[in-house]
Design a protein around this nucleic acid. Structure first.
Length: 906
RNA sequence: GGGCGAAUAGCUCAGCGGUUAGAGCGCCUGCUUUACACGCAGGAAGUCACAGGUUCGAAUCCUGUUUCGCCCACCA
């Protein structure tokens, strides 16, 4: 038996204790099946496919950010009546996971090669079995309401079938091909990489000028050779030509000559190619088709041979002669020394340049030529580009649509084969007898071409992102035509960090359109990176990492979620500091204590007659005021959700709850409740309950816990299911229409305005008290002079007296007069005369009021100027003009009051 | 070499065409006020980077400049 809350009448702890609430509630939610979604034609679907974290990963703030946003969206739409599916999963993360297990093996003095492929893969599965579930439980701690019954792993049967089906389809359409191409090679990971997996960084380097001697001896002008410039001298063993620009006068007549490759004595031709820059280096370019993408193309144009100089581990191979076996950077040093000794090194200049590094290992990436599998991506990219251009998929923030388009327009074929053992093995079999290539979804027993049984499967696995790219449809059952796919696809929102826009989002767009013939999601929401308090990227080596689990333990999951998603905007990085976590924690505590107060108020009520009656008594100005603002808050929160402005939704709720309800309404209610008025108890319960619903998507735990205590004691029970997460979202727009919400049209504007005046009067008295350093306990007598209706001020007299500590409050209209030494100030249309006892400096008073008059005059001049401007009155919306007129009137009334006081002062 | 973002109170950031520009933190002055010191009340603090322009109206839109940051790109 799971208890939903800490027992109805047990006193609540003075401070909110997240740890006492979170685990219990989560277990209850999950075991009750509240997170589950199913095909339901009666409802509209709302789908988010969770970006699958690495299966061996640990929760970091990026995940926490993702979870906070996606859970808020999911819970909100669930409460809005959508069939909300948030589908979790994990990614096998090829290189990352394999490296982790390889490191383990290395510690034991073993290696994957020592134990062999089968044993190694088994070992990784064991690892996944042990550590694979950790991140799921960490997501649970955040309160993630995802449907765990649908949890998927990229290597599961379904996604694997999707991978093989996609591979075969693309192969048959000619969009997947195998080719000898130049690709990025990581010598640490010993695998090819896609262009995206290479990070470029500007680094100090050197440009070596090396003389290649003419094979036929010196020229008539005395030159003995050509000088080439290179940053990677060790690749010279792979040079198969030297290229000059055809119009370069320095090298006129040299094309066709042969030069001698240093060390090896090999002869290579001088060729002419327009791609050579005249103004860089020496104008003579060594061509190494095996180790430079540009040279590879030049080589193709000139039919040059390709020479590979590197072993897979980054050491030089046998073509390097005496340098064979040396690691590439060591070889570089040794070769430079040798060239110098041979008198072939013409010079060395400093040359900072961009160097590619493997995203995973950090090692310098080497371009090499090898047989790899590629996706001919252009046709897929065109459709993906079109889908964003025509708005079928929208990217938030919009500026990333340009980034996306730019990448899609310049996309290059995608190298998808990896020389790893952990991943989806490429579904290709080579025949030993007929050389036929069999591509098959099922493991074939024989060659498709000749029936030979001597077939062997391709050794490589696919890029992890290949399976990730299928995620939005492979998790829903594709390639089967499932009801899930039909109902939940395309997903509503894809929410993830902007750093994987190309890696993942772009690939999902292409693959989704290709496989399902529809976009994978309607909206892409990109959040920024979480940085430390100083704006630095968090990293273990810097030691500035905030561990989300520690934050949850210290501040609570609600606080962490709130801190991560408040005061931030999509696509912009955000800084998280303990200060922000504290502020969020304080808010949860504030809410908790408001709840405690309201619950106590309900307990203490000695007469709640009419409690069950329909709706609330809305006659009292305080109640009308707080209810009108509650309504406006609900409207604003719903509007913010529509625009995916989660920070705004939370800001509005924070402000309403703290600044309106806690700071004022509760204090006002106390006054009336002490006098025996029961109505505020109902209003409090109602308002708090509405806010708990609105806030629940962001702070699921504290809101649910309070709601459980509150739900059976509501004045207007209406819709009270067993859990807050199943309750409906207050949405006045939906029910009443936008116009009806507008305070002016509902007739609430006068009540709201009048109450604001009351609050200002209270503030002004407090202000004077502080200014004159009057003890807070000393009551001050006050006289009010009101221009206009003073009904609300009279109705609120007790409130003013209590909150402002006024002794006798009287009205000038009753003939009351302030004593000669009273401090006089003007609040809106009210003059407040405060008896502060003896000793008011008349001159200072005159100066203060004079300054106020001047300021008000300046303000009024601005307004009057605007209103006397024909253009303004003509062109500005009537609403704006009207508002300015009203302001002018109010301001004039105020100015009059000030002037009158000045006259009285003499 | 292209592209993007940021520049608003001491700090971190909202606001992105219509009040005399806001919040949190920090700062100053007071408070054991029976929900909360994770709190309450009051206060100080901003030529919204700079220069032009569009507009009845600009922190907000446009152009340029400066300073940071990021992304993309095969310059040996």
């Amino acid at each position: 038996m799971i208890t939903t809350h800490s027992s109805p009448r047990e006193p609540l702890s003075k401070a909110y204790e997240a740890a006492a609430v979170e685990e219990r509630l989560y277990r209850w939610w999950e075991e009750s099946g509240f997170f589950k979604a199913q095909v339901n034609p009666a409802k509209k679907p709302f789908t988010i496919i969770m970006p699958p974290p690495n299966v061996t990963g640990q929760l970091h703030l990026g995940h926490a950010m993702t979870a906070a946003i996606e859970d808020a969206l999911t819970r909100y739409h669930r409460m809005k009546g959508f069939e909300a599916l948030w589908l979790p999963g994990t990614d096998h993360a090829g290189i990352a996971t394999q490296m982790v297990v390889e490191r383990e093996l290395a510690k034991q003095g073993s290696s994957r090669h020592a134990i062999g492929r089968e044993a190694f893969v088994k070992r990784v599965w064991e690892w996944v079995g042990t550590y694979g579930g950790i991140i799921e439980d960490q997501l649970r701690r955040l309160g993630a309401s995802c449907d765990w019954s649908r949890k998927t792993f990229t290597l599961d049967e379904g996604p694997s079938l999707a991978v093989r089906t996609t591979f075969k389809n693309l192969y048959e359409r000619g969009l997947i091909y195998r080719g000898e191409r130049i690709t990025n090679w990581c010598v640490t990971c010993r695998t090819a990489l896609s262009d995206l997996e290479v990070d470029h960084a500007e680094e100090p380097g050197a440009l070596y000028q090396i003389r290649y001697e003419f094979a036929d001896g010196p020229l008539p002008d005395g030159r003995t050779g050509l000088v080439v410039a290179t940053t990677r001298p060790e690749t010279l063993f792979g040079d198969t030509a030297v290229a000059v620009h055809p119009d370069d006068p320095r090298y006129e007549g040299l094309v066709g000559k042969r030069v001698v490759l240093p060390v090896t004595g090999k002869h290579i031709p001088v060729i002419a190619d327009e791609a050579v820059a005249l103004d860089f280096g020496t104008g003579a370019l060594k061509i190494t088709p095996g180790h430079d993408p540009n040279d590879f193309e030049t080589g193709e144009r000139h039919h040059l041979p390709i020479v590979n100089v590197l072993n897979p581990d980054g050491s030089l191979n046998e073509v390097a002669g005496p340098f064979a076996g040396q690691e590439r950077l060591a070889a570089r040093k040794a070769l430079v020394a040798r060239l110098e000794a041979d008198g072939l090194l013409e010079g060395v200049t400093e040359h900072p340049h961009s160097v590619g590094h493997c995203q995973r290992s950090g090692d310098i990436v080497e371009p090499i030529v090898s047989a790899q599998w590629f996706v001919a991506i252009k046709p897929l990219a065109e459709r993906a580009l079109e889908a964003v251009r025509d708005g079928r998929t929208r990217i938030v923030p919009e500026r990333f649509e340009k980034v996306y388009a730019n990448w899609m327009e310049n996309i290059r074929d995608w190298c998808i084969s990896r020389q790893l053992w952990w991943g989806h093995r490429i579904p290709v079999w080579y025949c030993a007898d007929c050389a036929h290539v069999t591509v098959s979804i099922e493991d074939p027993a024989a060659c498709e071409g000749c029936g030979s049984a001597y077939i062997t499967q391709d050794e490589d696995v696919l890029d992890t992102w290949f399976s990730s790219g299928l995620w939005p449809h492979s998790t829903l059952g594709w390639p089967q035509k499932t009801a899930d796919l039909d109902y939940f696809y395309p997903s509503t929102v894809m929410e993830t960090g902007y750093d994987i826009l190309f890696f993942w989002v772009a690939r999902m767009m292409m693959m989704g359109l290709e496989n399902v013939d529809d976009v994978p999601f309607q909206t892409v929401y990109l959040h920024g990176l979480v940085r430390d308090a100083d704006g630095a990227k968090m990293s273990k080596t810097k030691g500035n990492v905030i561990d989300p689990l520690e934050s949850i333990a210290e501040y609570g999951a609600d606080a962490l979620r709130f801190a991560l998603t408040t005061g931030t905007t999509p696509g912009n990085d955000t800084r998280l500091s303990p200060a922000r976590l504290q502020a969020a924690r304080n808010f949860t505590n504030k809410l908790w204590n408001m709840g405690r107060f309201v619950l106590a108020a309900l307990d203490e009520a000695d007469d709640l007659s009419g409690w069950e009656g329909p709706g609330l008594d809305r006659t009292h100005p305080e109640d009308r005021w707080v209810l009108a603002k509650a309504q406006a808050t609900a409207v604003a929160v719903n509007a913010a959700f529509t625009e995916l402005q989660l920070a705004e939704a939370q800001r509005v709720l924070y402000e309403y709850l703290w600044s309106t309800v806690a700071d004022w309404y509760i204090e006002l209610a106390k006054v009336r409740m002490r006098a025996g008025d029961q109505r505020p108890r109902k209003v409090l319960a109602h308002v708090l309950e509405r806010c708990l619903r609105l806030l629940h998507p962001f702070m699921p735990y504290v809101t649910e816990e309070l709601w459980q205590h509150l739900k059976d004691r509501l004045p207007d029970p209406g819709d009270t299911p067993v859990s807050l997460m199943l309750a409906s979202m207050p949405d006045p727009v939906g029910r009443l229409g936008q116009e009806a919400v507008d305070a002016r049209l509902t007739g609430e504007a006068p009540a709201v305005e009048a109450m604001e005046t009351v609050l200002d009067v209270v503030r002004s008295v407090r202000n004077v008290r502080a200014e004159f350093k009057i003890d807070p306990a000393t009551p001050l007598d006050a006289v009010l002079t009101v221009s206009g209706d003073e009904g609300v001020l009279r109705a609120e007299a007790e409130a003013i007296r209590a909150l402002a500590r006024v002794g006798t409050l009287s009205f000038a209209s009753d003939g009351a007069q302030a004593p000669a030494g009273a401090v006089k100030l003007v609040v809106r249309n009210v003059a407040v005369m405060l008896d502060v006892g003896a000793g008011v400096d008349l001159a200072a008073e005159r100066a203060r009021l004079g300054a106020e008059a001047t300021e008000t005059e300046r303000y009024l001049r601005g307004l009057a100027g605007r209103l006397s401007n024909e253009q303004f009155v003509e062109k500005a919306p009537a609403e704006v003009v009207e508002r300015e007129r009203a302001r002018l009137e109010d301001g004039q009334a105020r100015l009059e009051r000030i002037r009158q006081l000045l006259t009285e002062l003499g």
